Computed example of a mutant assay.
Amino acid sequence: MRRRVLPGLTLSLGITLLYVGLIVALPLGALIFKAASLGPEDYWRIISSGRALASYRVTVLSAAAATVFNLVFGLALAWVLVRYSFPGKRLVDAIVDLPFALPTAVAGIALTTLFAPNGWFGSWLSEAGIRVAYTPLGIMIAMAFTSLPFIVRTVQPVLEDLDPALEEAAQSLGGSDVAIFRKVILPLLVPALLAGVSLAFARSLGEFGAIIFIAGNQPFETEITALLAFIRLEEYDYQAAAAIASVLLITAFAMLAVTNFLQARALRYTARS
């Protein structure tokens, strides 16, 4: 009889469902229930107010810009970590996970210190007429910092598992390095890139601690949606806070659903190829 490390299916499934119910489903259910307690007119009035719409614009555009930056930089970083050896490689590899371990509020304070007009980087940028702290650019940098590991860590294992024979075969057929990357390597990375992009974008949408210090939090200019929901909580307007938070929740779920669909199509295309 084959021994199993974990207990039987019934017990394992029960523990898993209990954990998911308490940690994931219960808080989300409470949020949805609180938002649903509003009537359709009140709900629409809250989520379509001018201040809320401005916060959506700031949040989504900043998250999209940070995700695009991380898509390029994260892919390049994963490629360097996998394909090259250099002094300090282990240190760089460990630093990639720093946003996971570092409290986001600490990250926000550190970024503000660096990019403030009198900061190390901010003073140089100010001389060039570029403001970072207390602008949408600062929000993008904070989002990029906290979401970068999602792309690197989803792409890195796939690069490590790629069969070198595929590249060698393409080289033997006279393919250039650019053509090999575009036609051989990139299609195999697409599912992992889509997973990393969706996770990075969803993390950026909900980021709070790393942003509030560097954003300036000016309504209609640098106020993110998560902060607006927090302000409504401080005003004891729990229904409005739940309604605004539900917009982020719906957006994140929609993003994940679209990404899963695109991943499935990419995997089918790769299998046929």
Rank of each mutant, 00 (worst) to 15 (best):
Y236T: 10
G175D: 08
T259C: 14
L53A: 10
A243Q: 04
Q218D: 11
G50R: 14
L28K: 06
A66H: 00
E223M: 15
L194R: 05
S62A: 14
V20I: 14
S55V: 13
P40C: 09
L98P: 03
T270S: 15
F145W: 01
L11V: 15
L71Q: 00
Y84N: 05
G216W: 05
L267F: 07
A210R: 11
I214A: 07
L256F: 06
L256S: 06
A94R: 05
L193R: 06
S273M: 14
I231G: 02
Q239E: 13
A30K: 11
T259Q: 12
M143N: 01
S172V: 13
R268F: 05
T222M: 04
G175R: 12
L125C: 11
Q171W: 09
A215E: 06
T16K: 08
V72L: 13
A264N: 02
L22D: 03
D237E: 12
Q171A: 14
A240P: 00
L18G: 11
K89D: 07
F230P: 00
A36R: 11
L111K: 08
L13D: 02
I23Y: 15
P187D: 08
Q239Y: 02
A254I: 08
S85K: 15
L61C: 03
G129A: 08
G196Y: 15
E167P: 04
A266K: 04
R2M: 10
E127N: 12
T154R: 07
V82S: 13
L111R: 09
V197Y: 07
R182L: 04
F121P: 05
A254P: 00
F253L: 15
S126D: 08
N70K: 07
V184N: 05
F261P: 01
R83E: 06
L227Q: 12
A257I: 07
G29C: 00
Y134T: 00
T251S: 14
R203T: 02
T112S: 06
A179I: 11
A245Q: 04
A25S: 06
G122T: 02
S176Q: 06
L9C: 01
P40V: 01
G206L: 15
G209C: 09
R272C: 11
Y19K: 13
A243T: 00
Q263E: 05
